[in-house]
Computed example of a mutant assay.
Amino acid sequence: MSVNKAKMVSEILGLGGGGGELHKLTIYYEQGGVQRQGSIEALFNPSEITLTRSAKWEQQETVGQSTALVEQEFRSVEAERFSIELFFDTYESRSSGLTAARAAATFLPAGLISGREATDVRQYTDQIARLAKVDAELHRPPVCELRWGVFDIFTGVLTTLQQRFTMFLDDGTPVRATLTCEFAEVGTQAHATELHSSDVIKTRQVRRHDTLQSLAADEYGDPALWRPIATANGIVNPRDLRPGTRLTIPKLQP
């Protein structure tokens, strides 16, 4: 009788249901050459995943006011980040099926173990590590898609990988590892917003040494386009620009 170790341990730890087929979290990754896509199946499904999205705001200085007024100017939406811990354990018998007690025992504290009832866990962890290396055909690390059954979790690139080996055979062969992986989003419309777009209305707080020309260069890429800023803010004398003044930066008309 064969025993599905991943399914048994997942059920013992509450990581998967016992009523139907246990789907594995799978990482699909692009490859150069003839084979266009590879895949890596998790040995054990994770107990949790974390998705992080952040927006960048810049605090503006308040000048010449008796009461401090904190204002925030929106700058960009950062790429979403995805983090996950993947567990790998190859300490299993080659000659007999795995019992529930043996499956649970693989989660005992780390240390050295005797015998040769295991294979090197790096045969699995090295597959993940390669996702952070340059593909010879792509000339960069691959873009990955992470899926778990019906859950299309994330599309991105592996930016950080920490490998922690916690159990070894008496000859030093690692048989248990936890990989902490962090991916950064790619391939969607949620990347950082262009800060100097000329087709949206924004505001800017005047700082020391700012001029209408320098603001136009920052916002529109052309210092000669200062007049729309002057008109939108009722500025008659372009030299009379006081630090701390908040200006409307209009979008350019086509």
Rank of each mutant, 00 (worst) to 15 (best):
F44L: 10
V34L: 12
Q31L: 14
N233D: 02
E182W: 03
S114I: 13
L225T: 09
Y28G: 05
G18F: 01
A104R: 14
V9M: 14
G64P: 02
Q60G: 10
T106A: 13
V134L: 12
L169P: 02
S93G: 04
V175E: 06
Q163D: 03
Y220G: 11
E194W: 04
W57G: 04
T159F: 04
V121P: 02
S114Y: 12
T248E: 15
W148A: 05
I113M: 11
G20K: 15
S93L: 08
F107G: 02
T99Y: 11
S96P: 00
E71G: 12
R53I: 12
G221V: 06
G111C: 01
A190Y: 14
A192M: 09
T99I: 14
Q127N: 10
Q65A: 12
L179E: 10
F82R: 12
K56I: 05
L195S: 10
E73T: 11
E58Y: 06
D218V: 09
R53P: 00
T119R: 06
G38C: 10
E145N: 13
T245G: 00
K133P: 00
Q162I: 12
W57K: 06
S39A: 15
A100D: 08
V175C: 05
Q65T: 13
F168G: 03
A110M: 06
E21N: 14
A79H: 04
P223E: 06
V63R: 04
E145T: 15
D120N: 15
C144W: 08
T193P: 02
T99M: 07
G187P: 03
L108E: 14
G97L: 06
L179G: 00
A68N: 11
G234E: 11
S76P: 02
I249H: 05
E71V: 14
H196K: 07
E219W: 15
P141Y: 13
T178S: 00
D135H: 09
K24Y: 15
E61S: 11
C181A: 14
Y124S: 10
E30T: 10
E219I: 08
T125H: 09
D120R: 00
G97D: 13
V9L: 15
A232F: 13
E185Q: 15
P174Y: 02
A104W: 07
